[in-house]
Nucleic acid binder design. Structure first.
Lengths: 337, 337
DNA sequence: CTGTTAGCGCTTTCAC
DNA sequence: GTGAAAGCGCTAACAG
């Protein structure tokens, strides 16, 4: 059996409350006693029992990150950072899979909350699209920080990327390379990002007095298969686009695959631009031009914000918008004369 | 304040012990009383408080998965499965980043264990290479299941892929396509997989009476950069290999990139074979021939095994070796005449 | 500044 | 079959 607070108290010759004070860095302990207790803690090899603390404080010391398993962005490298933050702040972090509008997912989440097993949540897209999470957490007054929320509200804190700006920059980059027919691949309608990216694309065309024609829009769902199919459709037309803005890196991968399968050279015959800058984008020949979303940093910021909220600490900025930046690699080039 | 066991007891008109029996599916409760209690539970919206249970049972109901943040295989899709399993079995699952031989990592782990915050661990490579984990968990008698352990022992349970067989099959595939000079890219020395894959490669050459020449071995550390550099070195030689067995998909990506940058056609001028079959292997032109490791299933099996161990349930097979299978895609082809 | 006391919500004896 | 009582390890409230 492990050492408890009583063992420490006995060893240090003081009461358990004093030990408790030392553990929690509370004031009103003389420096001498404090060091004495600290020595005792080391001597008996004491580590506080979190379950006891959790029970008495009605606090779970656990945070949930809601993730949609369909996307593969969340790698262990990304998660590593937030696990570290949690560790430092004494919170465990639970990765919680969530499918929007899926009753089992909802039940699990509701159970987690009603069972007081979590103190707060970070939601990542598209988990918050069904509104359930927001409603539930609001009802139970459980803090929530959204990453790229589907709908931004005035009250719920979020960390969001400026998809409009990012898409604008990407489209402008293609225009500046001389492209005039630039196709855009639409993402799922339940993602705010996909809507904003479309607007950014349109706005850039507008700004350069190019007409945004519906016929250069294709669905892709931001998936590989979607990008692949869309490209086949687009490139079999009489008039072909010279560039495709894929809307996401995953769909851009499909575009690249289809293009190469059709014997097209990238960027010679077709320029391709993605969005997200996921890990492999720079590792795929010829290097994918894309818009960098600092997803690691965003998740980190969201987690830090959530911890402050849960701890009841004051927060300056509750709603943060981050401007993404264009990363030019080999997949886009000047239009062939 | 949420409903407690007392509220349920009061509502059902029985003692808290009876409620406890119902919750835990214990015998010695009349069917009528049981249904009555169940109704009461629903009526008051009772959810057991895990912290209280944890405290009294000296059990954390939490499992740790040790992951090396350097590799990016662990996507949310992979994790989703095990989180689900944990949920069903009433265990929370903590993803724990771990760098072998890193003192901070060690301290964190030791703290987690001595603080009784976890009931058991699954380790993934290369977390167990420094021996620390195995020692620590053995000392504290905390159950451990290893995935692809660095050294297999007779006592510690593991789920492992047969890297020797996999590499043998991959190499043989290349030989059967007519390749005679097949380079192999070495992985990190602290990975059992990389050693076994080398042996499998050699054995296949041997079996076909081809001499395994040291000169066709290059280091890659199983990384993109390693694969890239190795390929540049190999393809600048007087005599070039006609195929590269990259040892991992990540390094294979580097090979593909370098090859295409050098204007080589794949598989026309160079066949490329990877190992792991990570998510994107099939999405990268021209499709990566590789050896499929069922990492999701392995992690799932390991987690289920760990739960049985932690629950003290009997287990049939404690050490499982899975035979991987070759997946032939576009990156390998018959040698050019 | 320090200690005593009373629980947190649950399971575990052990009587009935 | 069922229940009363004790206590897990800790913190909160209040005395001293």
């Amino acid at each position: 059996m492990a050492a408890t607070i009583k063992d420490v108290a006995k060893y240090a010759g003081c009461s358990i409350k004093t030990v408790s004070r030392v553990i929690n860095n509370e004031p009103y302990v003389t420096p001498e006693l404090r060091t004495q207790v600290q020595a005792a803690i080391r001597a008996v090899g004491y580590v506080p029992n979190l379950s006891a603390r959790r029970l008495v404080q009605h606090k779970a010391y656990m945070l949930g990150i809601l993730m949609y398993p369909g996307y593969s962005q969340a790698t262990s490298a990304v998660l590593s950072r937030i696990m570290d933050i949690g560790y430092e702040e004494n919170y465990d972090i639970l990765i919680q899979p969530y499918f929007p509008s899926h009753s089992r997912s909802r039940d699990k989440l509701a159970n987690l909350i009603t069972g007081h097993r979590l103190d707060g949540f970070v939601s990542t897209p598209p988990c918050d699209t069904d509104g359930f999470i927001v409603d539930l957490l609001t009802t139970y007054k459980v803090p929530l920080v959204q990453i790229n929320p589907f709908t931004r509200t005035e009250t719920i804190p979020y960390i969001a990327g400026d998809d409009y700006q990012g898409a604008f920059a990407a489209t402008e980059h293609l225009i500046n390379l001389g492209h005039r027919i630039i196709a855009f691949l639409l993402g799922p309608r339940n993602l705010r990002a996909s809507v904003d990216r479309l607007y950014g694309y349109r706005a850039a065309l507008d700004a350069h007095r190019l007409t945004a024609n519906e016929q250069w829009l294709e669905d892709s769902e931001f998936t590989f298969d979607g990008g692949y199919t869309a490209t086949k459709l687009l490139m079999e037309r009489q008039v072909r686009p010279t560039a495709i803005f894929a809307g996401s890196d995953e769909s851009a991968l499909g575009v690249l695959f289809a293009a190469q399968e059709m014997g097209l050279r990238v960027p010679g015959d077709l320029s391709v631009c993605g969005y997200d800058d996921f890990l492999l984008s720079k590792n795929i020949w010829p290097g994918l031009t894309t818009v960098h979303q600092p997803s690691e940093e965003m998740l980190e910021q969201a987690t830090r914000l959530l911890i402050k909220l849960v701890n009841g600490e004051p927060v300056e900025e509750k709603q943060v918008v981050i401007t993404p930046r264009l990363v030019v690699r080999g997949s886009t080039g000047r239009i062939n004369p």
